[in-house]
Computed example of a mutant assay.
Amino acid sequence: MKINWKVRLKHKQFLLGAFALLLLIIQQIGVLLGYDTTIYNERVTELFNTVLAFLVLIGVVVDPTTEGTNDSEQALKYEKPKDDK
């Protein structure tokens, strides 16, 4: 598996998704260790987690090798994933 981390770490959506994932993981570890991670009340905590999960999804779905959230013209023409072998 080859990943161009230089490009990914310069892409805002990827960084936002990675940060949101880190917050969710920290929260889950806190719950496992017995800490109360409720923000204000249960509903606010659930809403916060939903927003974080959405941000993680955006960071995963977006192509970090292009500007913004669109795929490149080349990627839009693919019928199947490109095989680099």
Rank of each mutant, 00 (worst) to 15 (best):
A18T: 15
R43E: 14
P64H: 05
V60G: 01
L16W: 02
E79R: 04
D83W: 03
R8T: 00
I25C: 03
P81W: 15
V60F: 04
K77W: 00
I3V: 15
K2L: 14
K82H: 07
Y78R: 11
T66E: 07
N70I: 02
E42Q: 15
T66W: 10
T69W: 09
M1G: 15
Q27T: 14
H11M: 05
Y40D: 10
K82D: 02
D83Q: 08
L24G: 02
I25A: 07
S72L: 02
D71P: 04
K2N: 15
N4D: 15
N70W: 08
V60S: 07
L76M: 15
E46G: 03
I26E: 03
Q13D: 07
T38F: 07
E79M: 04
K6Q: 13
E67Y: 07
P64C: 06
R43G: 14
I29G: 05
T38K: 07
A20T: 00
E46Y: 10
L33W: 09
Q28P: 01
I29P: 06
Y78F: 09
A53L: 06
T66V: 09
I39A: 05
V51H: 05
V60P: 03
F54L: 11
T38S: 12
E42S: 14
L57P: 08
R8L: 03
L24R: 01
I39E: 01
K2P: 11
Q74V: 09
K6Y: 01
L22I: 14
I3Q: 06
Y35Q: 09
T65M: 08
E67S: 15
T45A: 08
E42W: 10
A18D: 00
V44N: 02
Y35M: 13
F19R: 03
D84H: 07
L21A: 03
A18M: 10
Q28C: 01
K6A: 08
L23M: 09
A18C: 04
Q27I: 10
A53M: 08
Q28D: 08
L15D: 00
V51T: 13
G68A: 06
G68Q: 04
I26Y: 06
Q27G: 06
N4Y: 06
Q13E: 09
N49V: 07
T45G: 05
V56A: 06
G17K: 00
I39G: 07
A75C: 08
T69I: 12
D36F: 03
D83P: 00
L33A: 07
T38Q: 10
